[in-house]
Design a binder for these strands. Structure first.
Lengths: 214, 214
DNA sequence: TAGTGTGAACAGATTCACAGCG
DNA sequence: CGCTGTGAATCTGTTCACACTA
């Protein structure tokens, strides 16, 4: 076990290891080594070993790692042994797609409600999750102790919706709206701007075509 | 102008500057400084100045940056003065949401076609973009010189679809499927796993609740 | 004189290289 | 012997501090 604090970058890789281990366990693999994990994840083997070592020695020298044991350790360390409770704010195409995706594909996350302000769709269901009016948000957050709010409303409504979320008591916002939200201290905003990511990729089409370095 | 090569991280920030400048220009702001840009983007002022300096001196000492001039420079440097030509592979909820989002909200990107294998939806339109069968992909890629393919198919079909994309001649894949794609050298894959990102956020709910550092 | 532009110091993350153990 | 675990070296990115100039 190392005593240095865990790097941000390691934290981001842990769920990837988890996904990989789930796949291996499904295929009845019960022992892996860092080279195999490297192939599956595209991270280097040394980096993988170092990541694990921040949390203690999970492996067996000369052999590797027992998949189920490693999985349990990562679950504990990430807090994913209990599901992340999530609400989705904004039931447009993106909000619904994100809700569906996580309801059906993400076993570590529980979507408890989707919120919108359009009366025409309140009461509709996304799979088994009800679309509710935003005015019910605080009640739901209290009832289910919501961890994260996914924000996917139109641009003009983003700051107001963000304020609602903060007032409801949610401390972490996963923001898909291309705007810099203004939030109080102690609120963590994780931004993802899909247009920006797509624009960044233009650079690689450059690099690949021309071999240029700018 | 510095002579060191441009960091990856700078490249990722350029589209954010672009978005910010678009907003400022829309509000008829024609001069900004790095402090204002810092407020708008949440990057530090020094970092912003350093980012720009990699491409030459865009500013005026004692004054700041002319928004339109800075915008033009960033457009040139990123290649975004010409639109990024994009196809979407997979017309499920996520694929359609991503297509709509970029058709309506992203002025620097042109979606030319959405592909699927389900005969029931071939020929449908997403706004003004037609859903086509995957067998037409190579033809479309050649005709429009497609830069980027957004991959959003079900897990089991991801590797086959990726092979199709590569064979069609697209060099950059924006992959939303939670799998490590196997691609030849020279193909750039940019992965985004929305479940993984959501799982990572669990860590911050920890940190905020307990003030812990693991 | 206010704000840019940048070398130098610093911080964070990854790779190297090998000691240590099952 | 093989693979883990980890300090040390390296690389990458950010912040500091200040010289510079429109």
């Amino acid at each position: 076990m190392q005593d240095r604090k865990v790097p941000e970058s390691t934290i981001k890789r842990l769920p990837v290891y988890l996904r990989t281990l789930d796949n291996l366990i499904r295929k009845d693999v019960d022992l892996v080594n860092s080279d195999i994990l490297s192939e599956e994840t595209a991270f280097t083997a040394e980096l993988i070993r170092k990541d694990f070592s921040f949390f203690g020695a999970f492996g067996i020298r000369g052999r590797g790692y027992y998949t189920e044991n490693l999985r349990q350790n990562i679950l504990k360390v990430t807090g994913l042994d209990k599901p992340t409770i999530v609400i989705v704010v904004g039931a447009g195409y993106l909000g619904i797609a994100l809700a569906r995706f996580n309801i059906t594909k993400n076993p570590y996350t529980k979507i408890v409600s989707v919120f919108d302000i359009n009366p025409a769709i309140i009461g509709n269901k996304i799979i088994d999750v009800e679309i509710m009016h935003v005015s019910k948000m605080a009640e739901i957050v209290r009832k289910y102790t919501v961890d994260v709010a996914i924000l996917a409303v139109p641009l003009e409504q983003a700051q107001v919706a963000s304020n609602n979320i903060v007032q409801s008591g949610v401390k972490v916002i996963f923001n898909f709206v291309p705007v810099t939200l203004d939030v109080p201290d102690g609120i963590h905003v994780h931004n993802i701007d899909l247009s920006v990511e797509l624009q960044t990729l233009k650079y690689y089409t450059f690099k690949i075509r021309a071999g240029s370095t700018f």
